[in-house]
Design a protein around this nucleic acid. Structure first.
Lengths: 187, 187
DNA sequence: ACACAGGTAGAATGATCGTTCTACCATGCG
DNA sequence: CGCATGGTAGAACGATCATTCTACCTGTGT
């Protein structure tokens, strides 16, 4: 019932759901596929999440946490503030080259769900807000001037790179975005 | 049968399909809705496009042409090369504030369709390629150095701004992206 | 031993999906 | 007139959708 479940069955269900939705989209991923792939019965799913949307919203929340953890841990391997900011784009580049890369799950979800007040859209907003706050924190280690403005600019670069990597299949977009970031930091 | 139909029934069908898919997504938009909203019979639709995917691919091609026409006409209202490049982001800002704005139809489509070889994904790629070439052409009026590189950077800014405007509902992202562009041009 | 909590298996429901079909109506051209 | 052409109206098809249901299995605590 609670959000932070440690139940192994439910953990596995959420992991499978996250993976299926990421690779196939929300609407195109049926409950049948989720049930047969995860091995978790319909009864259990509806007992815990009430509906397909509830399950998917929770799976996306899970992905948010996992992705942010992965991204922050990887960028923070570099300690020098400026290099660390630029290192974000190296990490993105590695992500783009990962087999099965399909862009940002939250951008994709926002593009698929029409209603801006849908819980799924809220999860997407919260994810980008978290990412913005993380970037802001990194910027603060580098400069004290226009921290928020610079962070918002870097977020545009990040999401632009992700989007182009998906649509064009161009993994170099991360490098391009990194070049822009360098120019921005040396302004 | 041919792509550039002047048939008024088909034109209307494509316009309705484009609108429904843009606001509701591809998968969530059923043929029933398309039929009842457009008033065009199922028989006629399948005679012309063979399948739902065929119809939607054609509707997206139509949107590509219309959007590119709209965007280029609006940015080219400014004649001075540098100001014209920056004016792109003013035009984007106006778009974001349009009622019913739901991001880039092609980014949304690419996020929804899993298979990179799907015709719909190809239309999306071609759209971004056209946009890149348009930006490249504008850049050429401003400088002769690193034209392609600069155009690709500007494309990242454009798509980053569009994406954040959708996900965060933040229409100011166009202004932020314009600030980055200014820095880039004055480097 | 017994009850119970938490799971599986899978049938069933009614709605909706994309697609195909028959039956009709209008228009223009020989 | 006769007859394609190109459209509408809407029933029908089988598949699949999300959801609910009954029936059964399996540990664990008392």
């Amino acid at each position: 019932m609670n959000a932070a479940s440690t139940n192994p069955t439910i953990e596995h269900l959420l992991a499978v759901t996250e993976s299926l939705v990421y690779s196939g989209g929300i609407c195109a991923t049926g409950m049948d596929l989720i049930v047969t792939t995860s091995g978790v019965s319909r009864k259990t799913i509806y007992k815990h999440f009430g509906s397909k949307d509830g399950l998917i919203a929770e799976a996306l929340r899970r992905r948010d946490e996992r992705w942010m953890k992965w991204f922050s841990e990887n960028t923070q391997q570099v300690s020098e503030p400026k290099a660390r900011l630029l290192h974000m784009f190296t990490v993105l580049s590695q992500w783009f080259q990962t087999p099965g890369f399909r862009g940002c799950a939250f951008i994709n979800a926002a593009g698929e769900v029409g209603d801006p007040d849908d819980p799924i859209r809220q999860v997407a907003r919260e994810h980008k807000l978290k990412l913005l706050q993380f970037v802001e924190q990194l910027v603060q280690g580098y400069t004290q001037k226009n921290v928020h403005e610079l962070a918002e600019q870097l977020l545009i670069l990040i999401d632009g790179a992700i989007t182009l990597a998906l649509v064009m299949g161009d993994t170099r977009s991360a490098v391009r975005a990194g070049q822009i970031a360098r120019t921005l930091l040396e302004k």
